[in-house]
């Protein structure tokens, strides 16, 4: 994809170009780009040594570790179950099919704070699920496991909604061809279907991961927020802000943003590469 579209040679027949582009660029710059640049400015002011100093705080390091680690775990779970969900929704027809299809987007529509307190109520030691789990000696609420649970909820739709359209477009002949060549069901899935849905799966995984790293509302209730145990990076930003340590808050934000953008860029590159290679044959 080229960053610069080609300039149209013909005179513009449709009016409003200057007005709409002007408003778009001005609004975007004022509302989004200028404020985001503040993070870069703040990080620049701190310099590498300043950021390094803040990073060397074990509490910061641990919070980042928890945020990235739990997001990775949750995105992995969602990759597996999201693929299964997409498969079932595309391939099977059963009573309630449409309802479930609509319900998949609940995590997008439900405010995160509501999800947070609902999950906490469920997984707390006296909650519906927490009670039976604590009988098994598993503690979910107020541990990193609780964070993973919240992030599974939040990230659930990403993989489903990425993989679903690709599975829908998959020509049945591809699998039939593999079957005539002697491939078993497992071989067909692993060697034919999985490679075909891999780019979409990767996209969904990454979006779930990126969302999980930055997630705040659904996590802080169930996490318990114990420093060095279950404290996430976004919460540490809030805490630093409340302590008026704006520099530290901005530094953590800068690190999170850099990593997130790097991952998104990487994914875009992988997508472009796979599109180029696979074409639409």
């Amino acid at each position: 994809m080229s960053w610069f579209g080609s300039r149209s040679a013909s005179p513009r027949v449709i009016p409003g170009f200057g007005l709409t582009l002007g408003i778009t660029v001005a609004y975007l710059s004022l509302v989004a780009l200028l404020p985001l640049a503040m993070i870069a400015m703040q990080a620049f002011r701190l310099g590498l040594s300043g950021i390094g100093h803040i990073l060397s705080d074990p509490r910061t390091l641990h919070a980042l570790y928890i945020s990235f680690g739990t997001a990775l775990a949750a995105a992995t779970v969602n990759a597996v179950f999201g693929t299964l969900l997409a498969w079932v929704l595309v391939r099977y027809r059963f009573p309630g099919h449409r309802l479930i299809d609509a319900l998949i987007d609940l995590p997008f529509a439900l405010p995160t704070a509501v999800a947070g307190i609902a999950l906490t109520a469920l997984y707390a030691p006296n909650g519906w699920i927490g009670k039976s789990l604590s009988g098994l000696g598993i503690k979910v609420a107020y541990t990193p496991l609780g964070i993973v649970i919240a992030l599974i909820f939040i990230g659930l739709p990403f993989v489903v909604r990425s993989v679903q359209p690709v599975l829908e477009d998959l020509a049945p002949e591809i699998e039939e061809a593999a079957a005539t060549l002697g491939a078993s069901q497992g071989q067909r899935f692993c060697r034919i279907i999985l490679p075909l849905i891999a780019p979409a799966l990767l996209t969904g995984f990454t979006m779930a991961f990126a969302r999980g790293v930055g997630e705040y509302g659904s996590v802080i209730f169930i996490a318990g927020n114990i420093p060095m145990i279950s404290e996430i990076a976004p919460l540490l930003i809030v805490i630093r802000l409340e302590e008026f340590r704006t520099d530290a808050a901005a530094a953590i934000a800068a690190i999170m943003l850099t990593v997130s953008f790097a991952i998104l860029l990487l994914i875009n590159l992988i997508q472009a590469w796979s599109r180029k290679r696979l074409g639409d044959a």
Binding site: M38, I39, A210, V213, G214, M256
Partner: peptide
């Protein structure tokens, strides 16, 4: 750039205005 806010943590989205 229009899509950018989707990939920013909500907390950071608040933080930038505090800054």
């Amino acid at each position: 750039l229009i899509d950018l806010p989707f990939s920013v943590s909500p907390v950071i989205s608040g933080l930038i205005y505090v800054l």
